[in-house]
Amino acid sequence: MIELRNVSKTVVSGTEPLTIVQPLDLSIAAGEYLSIVGPSGSGKSTLLGLIAGLDVPTTGEILIDGDAITALDEDALARLRGRKIGFIFQFFHLVPSLTAFENVLVPLEIAGAADARDRVTALLSDVGLEGRAHHYPAQLSGGEQQRVAIARALANDPPILLADEPTGNLDSANGRHVVELLQSVNTARRTTIVLVTHDTELASTADVMLRMRDGQAERVTLEPEREAAV
């Protein structure tokens, strides 16, 4: 369960304050699939960063499973992400010096997981990359890198998965593959997914859509549309 209470974000642009996210209240239930859509600069990624504890809101507080993460320090936030949050980026952000296998292994090692290697093998198999485990990111295509990133995000079986434009850097076939992966994760594991995109087709695969414009958010329920699409 993710809860945002009166959360806003203002930065200083030049000498003028600029509000990127207007005060917002939002609840995302466990297992819910939420997409955030809006044009560039509307505050989507900033909102996602706030939910992940990557950034600090100017006002309000964010609670994950009832705990206010806005009160946590950097290290506590890092530990929280390690346990509860998986993150998928538009530009994949794999560690270039590690193989695909090691990239997926890292969060398990940080968490001190016992069966880490078996789990990595299984995850890479789930995303269809069993044969590419020992390749470095530079040796993988964009779609393959994103699948490694998804496997890595799922490594600790986090209850929350945050995705920032996960198909933005992929061709349509690879993009579709990634969307299917996210849907299956949401369905099979009941993982809460928050997906940022400007692709309305992709956004419509979610249960709920949050439309953002100039920092303002508007919640749109999509369940019937999604069912119709399926």
């Binding site: 290290d75 992400r81 010096s97 968490a111």
Partner: peptide, 16 residues
């Protein structure tokens, strides 16, 4: 910088 940011995003503490 990017690798460190990734590690921190994956749950590694500043000390680690």
């Amino acid at each position: 910088i990017r690798s460190v940011a990734i590690l921190k995003c994956l749950g590694a503490t500043g000390g680690q």
